[in-house]
Design a protein around this nucleic acid. Structure first.
Lengths: 123, 123
DNA sequence: TGTATGTTGAACCATTTAGTTCAGTGTATA
DNA sequence: TATACACTGAACTAAATGGTTCAACATACA
């Protein structure tokens, strides 16, 4: 179960690490597309594009359906949701960490300022 | 400029696609750590961990500083912010798309229901 | 000074990845 | 039926990845 989630995160981030695949996702935002259309758009062989689509599909970022001889690709939310959850958790934790650091820095500045004033106006 | 952003997104997502590297980030959430500490925690050679740290650093996910002979690693927000922005843009766009689809389905159901009632109670 | 520690670099290895070509299979259509 | 179209699978290639070992280098410390 935990392993499963880890593997799926691996798959989602790995899928997103390729500019062509991110391009495919952005293309599918405008409309669904067949493998042939995607291959032409991204100037590569059908076989090459098919592999990208398989990667995206296994990561849960696209879903496909074959009717007749054409396989139509459309967006799938699962993979993106999982990646988004992990990233947002990180951002929240990190921001509290950075906020704490900011406070330390602010405190240092406050003391420094007080110190400067003491120097200028003793007692 | 655009190329640059693409390359950085590639780097960020690729860095996040490895479970060990995500583990390092989660470890650094608790406290900064040296390469040696990280290598021990994740049960791998110093050299191996160093490579992971380089990957994370180039992706802007960690920053490091060497004082004396120890290099200390801490979290860097840049890479995560860039990845988060890209993902959140997608989620917004996709959600409006899925919402639109939901409305179509709802409309179909409404008509179906009306049709059913017409069948049960004519005129 | 000598020795232990923490890191770095070079070289190597197995596996994965991104792409290709070529040879199929199944489906629409004249 | 014959032909074109859309996809699929197998096999291959070059490069990247994740890991190792071994040798060096710089710094702390007795």
């Amino acid at each position: 179960m935990v392993q499963h989630t880890i593997a799926r995160l691996d798959a989602a981030f790995a899928a997103l690490s390729d500019a062509t695949r991110r391009g495919v996702l952005e293309h599918l935002e405008r409309s669904d597309a067949s493998i042939t259309e995607l291959a032409e758009t991204f100037d590569m062989t059908l076989t090459g594009m098919k592999k990208h689509v398989v990667v995206l599909e296994q990561a849960g970022l696209v879903i496909t359906q074959k009717v007749g001889r054409v396989r139509t690709c459309s967006l799938g939310q699962r993979g993106l949701d999982e990646a988004a959850v992990w990233i947002e958790q990180r951002r929240q934790l990190w921001n509290t960490r950075f906020d704490a650091l900011d406070k330390v820095v602010a405190e240092m500045k406050r003391k420094e300022k007080a110190n400067g004033q003491r120097k200028r106006q003793p007692h």
